[in-house]
């Protein structure tokens, strides 16, 4: 993997069109995601952020366009190719979407059951490792999803998404419904895992703090397409009214101030 160039594109969406009845959600939508980056998709409610995610992972058949992930045409791949591809990405749904009849450990083991001939002890060990990596306590593995808090369920969902060491993880609103402390801990977790495991992260979010804290690049969905993509700094200079409002609104200012403060603080400490 390391011999690849830094900005090779691993997800490429071209001319995507999604239509529900007469309601057009996406039209001529293009998006590229590069290997190793954390890309955040933002947009107002109803702009089809989740629909885009679902189209890429093949849960939603688009009306038109092509989706290419890791060099494979997702929409026209045969079942074997798709199955092989699915082992190379992981999806975390909004509320974890854990199987409620299984314990957390069994949930994390589910993707590994597809690996033929895997030693059960190793499977269990790896599941425990993943549970520990996402910051859950050791005894959480024996619990059922209904016994966990929302934040813990999200972490468990992430552990399941990471079970097979995917190259890409898709996160749907990873910090929605978490308290600020839990949300920033989750942000830090995403960054740390992405660095240490070399993950490409595709995250859909509303949370400006998450965008500041984690994303290398941001893609803004508006007017049925990806309006702009770029770093946070570039977003601030876009003069589309919605984008401007989004990144210059009172909440955005608070989030960016927070980021500045932490930077200054850590800078100061380093200086001392």
């Amino acid at each position: 993997m390391s011999d690849k160039v830094a900005n090779d594109v691993i997800i490429s969406v071209r001319n995507l069109r999604n239509q529900f009845g007469s309601h057009i959600v996406h039209d001529e939508l293009d998006l590229d995601v590069r290997r190793g980056e954390i890309i955040g998709v933002v947009g107002g409610s109803g702009t089809g952020k989740s629909v885009l995610l679902r189209s890429i992972v093949g849960l939603q058949k688009p009306t038109g366009g092509t989706v290419n992930v890791l060099g494979i045409d997702v929409l026209n791949a045969n079942e074997d190719t798709r199955a092989a591809l699915e082992a190379r990405w992981g999806v975390m749904f909004q509320d974890g979407a854990l199987f409620s009849s299984l314990t957390v450990r069994e949930n994390v083991e589910v993707p590994m059951l597809a690996v033929k001939g895997l030693d059960p002890d190793i499977r269990r060990q790896v599941a425990d490792l993943k549970i520990a990596m996402v910051g859950l306590p050791y005894n959480a593995g024996d619990k059922y999803p209904s016994e966990l808090s929302g934040g813990m369920r999200k972490r468990a969902g992430l552990a399941r998404a990471l079970a097979l060491d995917p190259e890409i993880v898709f996160l749907d609103e990873p910090t929605a419904g978490l308290d600020p402390i839990g949300a920033s801990a989750f942000d830090a977790l995403i960054v740390e895992l992405s660095r240490s495991l070399g993950l490409t992260v595709f995250l859909v979010t509303h949370d400006l703090d998450t965008l500041h804290a984690t994303c290398d690049r941001i893609a803004v969905l508006a007017e049925r397409k990806v309006l702009v993509t770029g770093t946070m700094q570039e977003m601030l200079d876009v003069d589309h009214p919605w984008v401007h409002e989004y990144f210059h609104g009172p909440r955005a200012r608070a989030a960016s101030d927070g980021k500045q403060n932490t930077k200054n603080k850590s800078g100061g400490e380093n200086g001392n």
């Binding site: 425990d128 549970i131 050791y138 005894n139 495991l197 070399g198």
Partner: peptide
């Protein structure tokens, strides 16, 4: 071990659960 492998080993080692 290659650099990525070394860093992965380090990450995993620090995350390794302490079984009760």
């Amino acid at each position: 071990a290659k650099p990525e492998a070394t860093s992965l080993l380090k990450t995993v080692k620090s995350a390794l659960p302490q079984p009760t």
